[in-house]
Design a protein around this nucleic acid. Structure first.
Lengths: 143, 143
DNA sequence: TTGTAAATGAGAATCACTTGCAATTATAGC
DNA sequence: GCTATAATTGCAAGTGATTCTCATTTACAA
């Protein structure tokens, strides 16, 4: 009986609240990681065993389109999802250990803003992510 | 008999200079567009009719790994390639007309640099691209 | 010229995701 | 609470981009 903001928003927009959507949303809200479709599927199955991967994809598509979650490409070939944070941030993924570091660079937001104004652009999506080696892995690599 | 810098670099690193590699390189060097694998393949076929798509992929993989070309995801589901420019730049792709606008934002480079130093990171790849509507398409859309 | 390891072509395979369709189910109205 | 019905689901087949397998070809050092 927890009135999750995501559930409420989904409902308000005229979507039906099904068991599988509720579960996917719960997993997304509880997880602090950046889950990809497959791990989202695995976690969701624990609560709704008959859920299908297609439903996971369909659910994140709806949530993404509503702006409730964001999709990132973290250097891998598939996408990762996260509930939208209050403050926008970007991601660094360590090639060595897989760790994801979130960072906020106001300068980037400013740069985008200036570019949009200068060129008369309307920006819809921003994709900004870095990969490399974190401090730990650099130390371990001997350089 | 033109000693293309890319050919020279390829050779210097111990790779064999085959007809198909030469052709792919030529197409990449001559084109000012951001070609995807398929159009690279189509253009290459005009000079080496029996070249296969697999070879195109293998060739760009080698070039990319050597840092001679860069791959970008321009809002589409597949990659686009470009010979590495002297000055780094990023891309804006118009959802309306498909036009790609290159832009340079020193602020972004600075932000990345500062982040790397602050967190002790070694940055290997930077993915930064925008999508939205260009001035023309915005006008045409009536907003 | 020749030996041999690298590279290629053709097509099968993979990976991430999407779609078609029949069966289920949430929910508005009675 | 029932019922009708349109949204949603599960499954399996389909896609699109890219990679891999393997037999054949080829670059190039000797």
């Amino acid at each position: 009986m927890k009135p999750s903001p995501l559930i409420t928003a989904l409902q308000a927009s005229g979507h039906r609240i099904t068991r599988q959507r509720r579960v996917v949303l719960e997993v997304l809200e509880e997880s602090q990681e950046h889950l990809d479709a497959e791990s989202l599927y695995q976690k969701a199955r624990q609560r709704a065993p008959r859920i299908s991967l297609a439903t996971v994809y369909r659910t994140v598509a709806v949530l993404k389109q509503m702006g409730l979650i964001a999709e990132y490409s973290l250097g891998e070939e598939h996408g990762h999802f996260e509930t939208v944070p209050e403050t926008p941030h970007y991601h660094f993924t360590c090639i060595g250990c897989g760790q994801v570091v979130e960072f906020d660079t106001p300068q980037v937001a400013v740069a985008i803003q200036e570019l949009a104004e200068r060129e008369g652009l309307e920006i819809c999506t921003v994709q900004f992510s870095l990969t490399g080696y974190c401090a730990c892995c650099r130390a371990g690599r001997g350089r």
